[in-house]
Design a protein around this nucleic acid. Sequence first.
DNA 1: GCCAGAAATACAAACGATTGTATTGACGCA
DNA 2: TGCGTCAATACAATCGTTTGTATTTCTGGC
Lengths: 338, 338
Amino acid sequence: MQKRVGLKELARRLKVDVSTVSRALRDDPRVKPDTRKAVQALAQRLDYRPNAAARALRVGQSGRVAVLLSPPQQRFASPIFLELLSTLDQDLRDTGRTLAVFAARTRDEEAEIVRQIIDEGLADALVLGRTRAGDPRVRFLLERGAPFVTMGKTDWPDRHPWVEIDYAHAGRIALGALAETAAGPLHVLAAPEGLNFADNYVAGALAEARALGLSPPQVWRIEMTEAAGEATAAEILARAPRPALACIQDSLAFGAYRAAAQAGCVVGRDLTVFGGQNFPGSEHMAPPLSTFSTEDAAIARLLSAVMLRRLARDGSEGPFETHLVRPEPLPRQSHFLA
Amino acid sequence: MQKRVGLKELARRLKVDVSTVSRALRDDPRVKPDTRKAVQALAQRLDYRPNAAARALRVGQSGRVAVLLSPPQQRFASPIFLELLSTLDQDLRDTGRTLAVFAARTRDEEAEIVRQIIDEGLADALVLGRTRAGDPRVRFLLERGAPFVTMGKTDWPDRHPWVEIDYAHAGRIALGALAETAAGPLHVLAAPEGLNFADNYVAGALAEARALGLSPPQVWRIEMTEAAGEATAAEILARAPRPALACIQDSLAFGAYRAAAQAGCVVGRDLTVFGGQNFPGSEHMAPPLSTFSTEDAAIARLLSAVMLRRLARDGSEGPFETHLVRPEPLPRQSHFLA
DNA sequence: GCCAGAAATACAAACGATTGTATTGACGCA
DNA sequence: TGCGTCAATACAATCGTTTGTATTTCTGGC
């Protein structure tokens, strides 16, 4: 385990000052081309690697971008996260940055973690998911002036870049599709109140019901887990025959399928289901789950690009980049009574 | 955006030296209890946060643990990763550490990234997945003496902690189960050669075939993506009727289901399939996919715990912690001809 | 009241890079 | 020859902690 070679070592060997070495490596025009070549050659030969901590301390930037994983993070957490992490890290590495990941246990803990990230210098910028009304994380970041990108609009939509998936649209479509053949009560299964995307979904569904002249569907605000979906669906099935379930995410729909199986019911006959986010496997289910395509890879690339552009912005003014992405309905067979 | 408060600021206000402040905050017995109280109180009041970069530079440790995401990372990447990231970050934060994530584009790039992580001080320790024969990442880390934990055994099984899932066992079980009712040729769909877990799976399947007195199944070494699984299954279906497919991971089985649908075939009648890793949704498929339960949450907790214990080890000798986890078969309906 | 020894604190040097400024030397020109 | 200029490099401070050592301030025993 030989000692790591640093600028000092290079300087010593070349009989120049560390400052010259440092500048040579960063292609500063002030160093003579010959010297620059020599320095770079030696650095290459000795496999010199700059110390990240030292650099971070000096320049006051960690060179890291953090992604905050919102609870619940389980095997059912949106597949998009992994895609996002992977795309983001690859893009970041191209600009000499690295990726940090933080996973809050509860929603309340998230704000505290964000504060810690910024104040301890654990990262320079953040990607936030699942925005909420009056999001304390966003409020804090704006206050501190730290760069960040959100998945989902916030209460300050023109003060930071964001990428929003149009859940209101999904809610409208799903409810409309279910209503067409529904023979029983309509239900909306969405994430807890206050989460923007869920509020939008519910609003879209309610609006569509109103537009169709239907009595408003019952809305269930539950955790986005298969277990919660199962419990809720079980309760719904016990109440009235032939319910129709608009589920904000496939995880909930998976739960509904399981509840149906437990109750001896068949999706497409005894109940109808519309999902969301097109989880792996949903197309092979019995019956194939109607859902929405969210193009995980494309959204990951978009978010990553938005973050990079945000980071590249020198203090310039101008408006921030925003994107509203419309999920594509993927009607399969679970949403209508056969 | 007021200036961050540092040790200096605390020291100035309390009229003591920064060294005293530093020691007080770390509960060093050398500082008088009164002073300690005062310092901690003020730190609390001013919401002092230590600068991570400065600390890292001084102590020569980044305080970060890296997870290396192996390609391909897509929406089908094992659900375990997200679970692992989440569990690991939560555990790490309890010990004042943070999590970094690196995603290689190709398998070859992984070794280079590992080198960068260690030599630039981007992390102190690593979690590696998908070990290979003669794994260059492991070789490098051993050389540098950096702590790491692998998912999967390596060629140096007693020089670092590891957690291995017994894929040989899965291969045996899957092949045996398929063989019972198979009416056509047996196939094994596994990840590329050299990947330890895949080699083990294939070995297990071949051994089982031999034990049953069967002619050896055809082995396909392909990327672990739904697309690759689909292409391979399509080719198999075109060759001979009623094949039986042992798929190392559900992603491949998903592909097989899709290929079957394309070819107008029905799983359980025209072909049989056994998967692995119990991806979300697999239980609701038509027919429900026979697979193996990998208990993602439990494995994530185990890996995380092993990493923490590895980090807690002062230079002490003694053997490293190793775990062989046996995946539980989850026979459902896709593996036998009805 | 003095002194040894301990307790508490202060001083100062790191860690490894970046960066503002000073210094050196070479050259051209009057 | 002398001087201003510019290129090239060296010097030195700095980022915010941690930590080894020196110094000061107590304390108790005589």
